[in-house]
């Protein structure tokens, strides 16, 4: 069986820095794949390669049976691969609703303005932002801006959603709400590939976890196995707290 997303031998170099080095993995339909690694491991770079923000030096990316290697991000999202940004980037001058309408209009279904309006309201309801629909995006709190990121990506009606640290900077209540949102996304049939530093959350959410260190894949396994993988523990050696936390959770 082939996966929804198949990455084969992808590499990217910036000047003297090998950001991503010969990474291969498969993401299966309907699963939540976690992506962890120490700071600077190349996680966001890998996301940028997958959705076409960066052009890869080597390797190939297949998505839903199509070769998307080298496609620009706007083409990739139209094929059903949407993402959020680690550093939230709302379209500041527009309202929350307009932001999500943009997502719906230019997403996989290429909706008309009229349909996009309906989709946007529906998605805002789902992420709990319906009451703020007519607020300017710049007026939102960080937690709400993260929800807006998710809402915009969802409005594109993706088959696969890339979530880049949607929990970072949120308080425990907000984290719990966001975890519920992610569960409901998966239940609606959308596969998820997520970067996260909040270990408890990613261990609980993910079906499998991919671990990067210094741009290389060092593990790809279910959460319970990952925490006992010696390479992973070594990669996190500089961060003993995290190792303890990992162990504590498994």
């Amino acid at each position: 069986m082939t996966g929804l997303l198949e990455v084969r031998g992808i590499s990217k170099r910036f000047g003297g820095l090998q950001a991503v080095s010969d990474v291969s993995f498969t993401l299966n339909e309907g699963e939540i794949l976690g992506l962890i690694g120490p700071n600077g491991a190349g996680k966001t770079s890998l996301f940028n390669l997958v959705n076409g923000v960066y052009k890869s030096d080597k390797g190939s990316i297949m998505f839903a049976g199509k070769d998307i290697t080298g496609l620009s991000p706007d083409r990739v999202v139209r094929l059903g691969l949407a993402r959020t940004h680690q550093i939230v980037r709302p379209l500041q001058g527009m309202t929350v609703l307009e932001n999500v309408i943009v997502g719906a209009c230019f997403g996989r279904e290429n909706q008309s303005m009229h349909d996009a309006h309906a989709t946007a309201l529906e998605v805002l309801e789902k992420v709990g932002l319906a009451k703020r629909a007519y607020s300017p995006a710049r007026a939102l709190t960080l937690a709400s801006k993260k929800r807006l990121e998710v809402a915009r990506a969802l409005a594109a009606k993706p088959k696969l959603l890339l979530l880049d640290e949607v929990l970072a900077g949120l308080n425990p209540t907000e984290i719990a709400q966001m975890i519920d949102i992610i569960h409901s996304i998966r239940d609606s049939g959308i596969s998820v590939f997520m970067i996260e530093h909040v270990m408890q959350a990613i261990m609980n959410l993910s079906d499998r976890i991919l671990v990067l260190n210094l741009g290389r894949k060092i593990a790809e396994a279910p959460p319970a196995e990952v925490v006992h993988n010696t390479d992973v523990v070594e990669a996190y050696l500089g961060f003993p707290d995290i190792v303890d936390k990992l162990r504590g959770m498994a």
Binding site: H85, L91, M94
Partner: peptide
């Protein structure tokens, strides 16, 4: 308008 607000974000939105 999306391009005006943030061109890179607009591209990622499609």
């Amino acid at each position: 308008f999306a391009i005006r607000e943030d061109e890179d974000a607009a591209i990622v939105l499609g």
